[in-house]
């Protein structure tokens, strides 16, 4: 595990596993490819993508990540934000 500290600039992977077959993922579609900033680490949890299929699930770090809300939608109030729990394997450093 590499580990992202609070304040690290990250990008959510622009990947669409749901287009390739049955999956269960906890990264909302509207964040794929978006840049955000780690608010804080939230510990580590078994990967839900495996738990969902009753497979052995490796424990993966989870982060609270902040995104600029108007940038996601191209509308909204400047300064508003969206904060989301995202697993480390969905994040890449910017």
């Amino acid at each position: 595990m590499t580990g992202f500290a609070a304040g690290t600039a990250v990008r959510v992977r622009d990947d669409w596993p749901e287009t390739r077959g049955p999956v269960h993922i906890r990264t909302p579609h509207y964040l794929r490819g978006m840049r955000g900033e780690v608010v804080r680490p939230l510990g580590a949890f078994p990967n839900p993508e495996d738990l969902a299929f009753a497979r052995t699930a490796p424990v993966i770090p989870l982060y609270h990540v902040r995104f600029d809300q108007p940038s996601i939608w191209g509308e909204g109030r400047s300064g508003d934000e969206v904060v989301v729990e995202i697993f480390e394997h969905w994040l890449e450093p910017v």
């Binding site: 909302p28 839900p48 989870l62 969206v82 989301v84 729990e85 995202i86 697993f87």
Partner: peptide, 12 residues
């Protein structure tokens, strides 16, 4: 006042 929407996606 800024709005912070928290999308509860995972284990919390």
């Amino acid at each position: 006042v800024r709005v912070r929407v928290v999308d509860s996606t995972a284990d919390y």
